[in-house]
Write a protein that binds this DNA or RNA. Structure first.
Lengths: 247, 247
DNA sequence: GATTGACATATTGTCCGACAATAAGTCAAT
DNA sequence: ATTGACTTATTGTCGGACAATATGTCAATC
């Protein structure tokens, strides 16, 4: 054997079709917001049956790049980070990613978000943060509400960074990691330390002091780690999916 | 209107089925490596037609949590980071993520990878890195091969960090970002500076000096930024997908 | 003994046609 | 302005059919 042929790939039709449509979208040929032709028309264009075409559509629909205009007609869509994040989260759960691993990533991303937010946050975003802080102060004793406020704070900071790649990379944290704040909050109760850290991050953002934002976000995450270790969640335990069926 | 009913969600059958299977997998009820029943059997179990069931399967197949045992039978699979990364990359392209945004994320993740690799790298991984360095030195003038070696180096370091969450977060960098090294390499040619940076990161990993690894990875990424700005790629241009059809 | 060929079998890929379910529009009646 | 009845377009689901492909078996061949 002096010559090796490359192994032949013969993807099924539904895969070819879905890839074709995906490329059309990624290349800009199809813009977000455009209505797609009906299933029958599309099937005719590709020369396949509706069944085959539908299988192709499912693939794209799940990855979020096409959705529904009105629960019927298909439309090219800008994927939401949460949609894309879901498949990433699934993968992480299957790979038995631990809290520790996620925390390490969070230690890389959250301080970064704080830093970038200093440069990019708009007045409106600062207001939202301010509102969040005030709300947090009011619900310090209500674990459930405090958890929601806590998660929202991190999302607001990340959004203020105006970096979609960062948002996307952060998505699994929302699904898998921050829900654990529930246990952390109970362990560190009352939430005084949480509020103080948030306050400092907020001030840093308002005064455009990136290093401070970074530093305080880091401290905040260190608290988080301590909380997990104190709670009944093992730091080296794999994360789980909290029965997430938001379809 | 004193009472608001929650809007009714009535997901189609194919979605319910796919979600059902996904949960069975995530809950561990179905382990990776297990063969799934045939389509006919599955359809009978759920009480739907094969067509409907197949649409459900497509969704899961695309997200990589089920695959093929032998191009026919379906099997529960550990999703590869590249598979999951592809949908993330698509989303980023559609959101017109710029080189700058990706670079900012890379500045958060790559030094982190270097740092973690110091603690976690096995002897075998160090050997692979050494081999990569030597190869790099040999192809400093061959742009194409140098690019491959460069990308491999970063992947090896990331793998040596032994953090799957990090690998997953990094996945889009491989698809969208590092291909741009092509232009960078031409701009910075010859690749002497690249090799020096790699060398220092490698030394730091071998001598278990996390700060050094972090620092040199950071310098390396700063070079990258300079290269992009010098090349004909705009730093504020949206990244594109390099006609990636690895099906 | 290893390779080839012929055959049966199981499973997925694709097609076709049909009908039910749902969303949107029109128009008249109240 | 709201309701109700009707029409129409489109997706959701069904059932059955056959082609294409991988597996296994067994005999024939060298």
């Amino acid at each position: 054997m002096n010559h090796n042929f490359p192994k032949l790939v013969r993807p099924p039709a539904y895969r070819v079709v879905s890839e074709e449509i995906r490329q059309a979208i990624l290349s800009g040929e199809l813009q977000a917001g455009e209505l797609l032709p009906t299933e029958i028309e599309l099937a005719e264009q590709f020369g396949v049956t509706r069944s085959t075409l539908r299988e192709a559509i499912r693939i794209l629909e799940d990855s979020g790049i096409i959705g529904r205009a009105d629960r019927k007609r298909l439309i090219v869509t800008l994927p939401k980070t949460s949609t894309v994040g879901r498949s990433v989260s699934s993968a992480m759960v299957m790979h038995r990613v631990t809290f520790k691993e996620l925390w390490q990533v969070a230690m890389g991303l959250e301080p970064l978000a704080g830093k970038l937010a200093c440069e990019s946050a708009t007045e409106e975003e600062k207001e939202q943060l301010a509102k969040n802080l005030q709300h947090t102060a009011n619900v310090l004793d209500d674990h459930k509400q405090l958890l929601d406020a806590e998660i929202e704070f991190h999302n607001l900071v990340a959004a203020a960074a105006h970096n979609h790649a960062l948002l996307q990379a952060r998505a699994p944290l929302n699904d898998l990691f921050y829900p654990a704040w529930g246990a952390v909050i109970r362990a560190l109760s009352p939430g005084q330390r949480i509020l103080v850290a948030h306050q400092h991050v907020f001030d840093a953002i308002c005064n455009n002091q990136p290093q401070d934002a970074e530093k305080w976000m880091e401290k905040h995450m260190l608290d988080f780690r301590r909380g997990i270790e104190m709670g009944n969640l093992g730091f080296d335990q794999p994360v789980t999916t909290a029965a997430n069926n938001p379809l």
